[in-house]
Computed example of a mutant assay.
Amino acid sequence: MAGLALASTLMTATTGWAASGQQTPVSGPPPGASAWRSDTSAGRELPDPASSTPTEVHRFFLRLTPDQQKLLAERHPLVLGNLDGAPAHLRYAANVLALADARAKEQTKADDARLTTGERDQAATRAERYRGLLAPGRQILAFDPRGRGQVAEVFGDLDASRHVAVIVPGSDIDLGTFDRSRNPYGAPAGMARSLAGATGDDTAVIAWVGYTTPVGLGPDAATGRLAQAGAPRLTRFTEGLVATGLPRPAVFCHSYGSVVCGLAAPGLRVSDLVVLGSPGMRAADSGSLRTTARVWAARSAGDWIGKVPHVRLFALGHGADPADPGFGARSVPAQRVDGHSGYFAPGTDALATFAAIAEGKAA
């Protein structure tokens, strides 16, 4: 009886339970992996995108000439642009080609009179999103058009950075909402841009949307299914950064993103793990995360996530509140934070602490 009551509470706390359909997580390497594996243009076997480690990928590229690297980017932009362990500048170049190709395909659909008006409008919207990511100066470290679309963007000079931060977003984030102008500090590009602006030139910030996020406050948001699919992808992404010689990053996890980070924690090669507006990390306390990283937590008084039960019942709920002193995380002040999506807003005490953490200055 108590279990049923708790389940009812959790379902009530996640209003829209029946309204939001379950998402199918994107998994495996992007399209084109088979053609990549069969390519012999480099004079040697190419690393398998599905099974080679980022360290193996990095070592492979060290043996290639610049012309060989460029040829692979031109022949397999979707694969190379998402290949953790490959040089950042090469991934940027590959993703320009992949985005241009994707935009051309969507524009063709948008102009196809045989399609319905709705189909043409959707294609035009996607083409416009891709056009925005192709704007001069943008550094796209990953791009995958499958599903609702995934992307990672770098703010700052990654190759010259002494400090790196990665932002992992929560629900309702995909290629379409990645850099929205409405509520910008609740979107990963706005969060990363703000953090980069609060840190020095030797810090690079990456907005990472590399997993399929929940839509709405339905069953996906109340369970760990999508987080379990996303955790290995986050682990591999951070391994790729370290494999290329970058310092261990500080990872900032917002809302449902903290569930992803909690499940990934044992394998993450990171300096700091920072959660904000967290529904729980699927761990009883910071020690249960089995990480050597420093664990931090922030929650503002006006954040609605504080009203969500921090419990787990079978598959429902995400467990203990990381912002509770008993969890054992270091506290990040959030007195000047507005609601659930204001943690990275300029002028907040949370942002100032995030910047200190990213730069390795926070005690």
Results as ranks from 00 to 15, higher is better:
L6M: 15
M11T: 00
T15K: 15
P25Y: 05
G28F: 06
P30C: 06
A33R: 11
D48L: 00
T53R: 15
T53F: 10
V57N: 00
H58W: 04
T65D: 10
D67A: 14
Q69I: 01
L78T: 09
V79R: 11
L83H: 12
D84Q: 07
N95L: 05
A100G: 11
A102I: 04
Q107L: 12
A113D: 14
R114W: 08
R114F: 05
L115Q: 14
L115Y: 09
R120D: 11
R138K: 12
L141P: 04
R146E: 12
H163R: 08
D174N: 15
R180P: 09
R182Q: 13
A198T: 00
D202H: 13
D202Q: 13
A204Q: 11
W208Y: 15
D220G: 06
T223G: 02
R225I: 00
R233G: 03
T235N: 10
A243R: 03
A250H: 03
C253I: 12
H254M: 00
M281N: 13
S288Q: 12
L289G: 10
T292F: 07
W296H: 11
A297V: 00
R299Y: 01
H310D: 04
H318N: 07
F327I: 01
F327E: 01
P346T: 01
G347E: 14
A355F: 02
I357H: 14
E359M: 11
A362G: 10
